[in-house]
């Protein structure tokens, strides 16, 4: 059994059937890139996976644990992070606060739940801050921790967004076209961060239009068309020996 098993995800918006049965499997520490033309349902699929959208059917099992669908009141322990195309940093918080916010809220909740009076929030907060600084060092922004999002370039904002997503130690980190909103000159600094994460064996699902990058960074490519997975394979298989016409067409049009 693979680490992540996604089967037959379907999703409609009203009359439009956007996902008609999307599924693939991946192992822990692997990088899967999802390719596909505009409107093929890549974003919708990621949103279903991260729980921003509720799929109409299908199943997701991670590490033997059911993630979707769940019974009412049932929960799962899989943590999935998502990095958006348009960063979505919180404008009123500086870089450091953007990264620590969710951690601090979680610490507060945990302290409350544990009822342990000796556990002090201030201590947890210091820990969270140290962790946030480590992450920001990793994405190369340690000298910007006091800056506000509006003072950063797109590439810098996206790197903060990655650090923010990493803060909660996600089991799987998803990216939805993380460089599409960036000037070409700024894409590399973001792609470099994602490559570094790959080298640390972060499990990642990346929707991208950066073909070279997908080729180099992925263990597996999932090619989507019209709401279904048309073809999956290693980068070599997909880029050099595509089996389906649609894949060939897509690749020739994206080069």
């Amino acid at each position: 059994m693979a680490y992540l098993e996604i089967e037959n995800i379907v999703k409609s918006f009203g009359e439009t059937e956007v996902l008609k049965g999307v599924g693939f499997t991946m192992e822990k520490g692997e990088v899967v890139s999802i390719l596909g033309s505009s409107g093929s349902g890549k974003t919708t699929f990621l949103r279903c996976l991260c729980g921003l959208e509720r799929a109409d059917g299908g199943s997701v099992v991670a590490d033997g644990e059911r993630v979707f669908p769940l019974e009412k009141g049932e929960t799962h322990s899989l943590k999935i992070g998502l990095v958006f195309q348009d960063f979505r940093l919180f404008p009123q918080y500086n870089v450091l606060e953007n990264v620590t916010l969710a951690m601090n809220l979680l610490s507060k909740q945990e302290i409350k739940k544990s009822g342990d009076k000796k556990r002090k929030f201030t201590e947890e907060k210091d820990k969270n801050e140290a962790r946030a600084k480590d992450l920001l060092k990793k994405v190369g922004l340690i000298d910007k921790i006091k800056n506000y999002p509006c003072e950063l370039s797109g590439g810098q904002q996206q790197r903060v967004a990655i650090a923010r997503a990493l803060a909660l130690s996600p089991d799987i980190l998803c990216f939805d076209e993380p460089t599409s909103a960036l000037d070409p000159a700024l894409t590399n600094e973001v792609l470099k961060v994602i490559s570094d994460l790959r080298n640390e064996r972060m499990t990642m699902i990346i929707v991208t239009h950066e073909m070279e990058f997908a080729k180099n960074v992925s263990d597996k490519i999932v090619f989507m068309a019209d709401g279904v997975v048309e073809e999956t394979g290693t980068p070599d298989e997909i880029f050099n020996r595509p089996k389906k016409d649609k894949t060939r067409e897509f690749l020739s049009s994206s080069l």
């Binding site: 991260c50 729980g51 921003l52 943590k79 999935i80 992070g81 998502l82 958006f84 979505r88 940093l89 919180f90 916010l101 969710a102 809220l105 979680l106 923010r164 997503a165 803060a167 909660l168």
Partner: peptide
């Protein structure tokens, strides 16, 4: 959405 995916 950015908040929700961070578990808030």
């Amino acid at each position: 959405e950015a908040g929700y995916v961070l578990g808030m």
